[in-house]
Design a protein around this nucleic acid. Structure first.
Lengths: 214, 214
DNA sequence: AAAAAAATAAGGGTTAACCCTTATTTTTTG
DNA sequence: CAAAAAATAAGGGTTAACCCTTATTTTTTT
């Protein structure tokens, strides 16, 4: 039954994490499971270049990394149509980040606070062509779905991104070539859709908590 | 020369980190150096209780942990006069956090992005009674010293903490039993001392970036 | 082509954050 | 005990964020 058994040794994996001890810990664990770790690195730029060049079967990427974050790596690989299966292994439990990644051909999303067993299961699933999203992040997404029932439109997301970068409505208007008043309208709509409490600066606060800022 | 050589096997160590793979990675590395890892756990509450009960020689604590964060553990141990030497091993590069910890008898501060060698050197130094603070965090502190030349007073710190919790000046006044106007004055003084740019909500923004909120 | 959804814009109002100045009281320190 | 530093408070002003309403244009869907 050779087609049933997983040939782990042919599953080449790249691991990228900017925390050396986590990196080595993950490498040791993944190797002990029988997979072939072909490259490790501590920054996103290197991870991206290595993946483009050597196209390993899978890659385990942290999100917070210097030069280029894991989401950017995923996005750029996705744009180039590279078939390396990407697993994000990160501490970011934000539903927003997960949702962004999900639309870019992501194969797995794990939280660092999760167990080793989860990583093992995830690797098996992804190696066989499946997708594995941590229950922890799905729970987080569900929590938000109740209040975030209505999805944000493209324009609203754009505005939210700029709010997270501390731009004022005026500045956002200039950047998007729309009136300040329109930006304010978008702000109100976002607050309504997200069902945020009536507080000053509530949007800035929310945006800062849910976006990775550069 | 027995008194020169370090008896690593008598150096009992507790390690706490809420990311299992980092925890096991650290444990494996520390053990490989010859130290005796007597307990590992993934939350601060357990770490605190174990340390109080068994008083190991050293403890390596992450800051972000469920139940009780590393800083709180350090603070409570310090208040009780427990002699376990604490090393914070964390991803928080904020100067403010380091400064808070420094005044609580801290023995070491390492960043997760630092190398294994750094952890090795730190353990040796602390085992011999010394203190080891990562160059990475000291650099961060220096960066802020230029702009943060004047230290914040106690009242200002208190206000800043509440700002990070999204309280308005009015709410802060009520909480601290002082006038809203006084709070506003503190805000202005903080902005001046930190040399922050003249922008709306700049304090909320700064406070959120530099404080761990609950 | 009509209906629905999204984006655009404006007028008008409230509030909190920030700025500046002045001034009194309390605490710390030489 | 003076002098310096910190905390307290108030008046008065500007601005950005948010709220509500109405309305036109553009895009998408049926």
């Amino acid at each position: 039954m050779k087609n049933c058994a997983l040939d782990k040794n042919s599953m080449t994996i790249l691991i990228a994490d900017d925390h050396p001890l986590t990196l080595y810990g993950t490498q040791a664990f993944v190797t002990s499971l029988g997979y072939k770790v072909v490259h490790i690195c501590t920054d996103g730029q290197e991870a991206f270049e290595w993946i483009v060049m050597h196209q390993p079967k899978m890659a385990i990427l942290d999100i917070s990394m210097p030069q280029m974050d894991g989401l950017e790596v995923l996005e750029k690989l996705h744009q180039r149509g590279i078939s390396t299966r990407i697993i994000l292994f990160t501490m970011h439990k934000e539903a927003t980040i997960y949702k962004r990644a999900k639309n870019m051909g992501l194969s797995g999303y794990l939280l660092k606070e999760g167990s080793e067993d989860e990583l093992k299961l995830c690797l098996e699933t992804v190696a066989q062509g499946g997708k594995y999203m941590s229950k922890l992040i799905l729970k987080e997404v569900n929590k938000h779905q109740t209040s975030e029932s209505e999805e944000l439109t493209f324009a609203e997301k754009k505005v939210l991104e700029l709010i997270a970068q501390q731009k004022t409505s005026k500045q956002i208007g200039d950047l998007l070539f729309i009136s300040e008043k329109t930006v304010e309208k978008h702000r109100s709509n976002i607050i309504q859709k997200l069902n945020l409490p009536k507080e000053k600066n509530i949007l800035l606060h929310w945006a800062m908590k849910h976006f990775i800022d550069k």
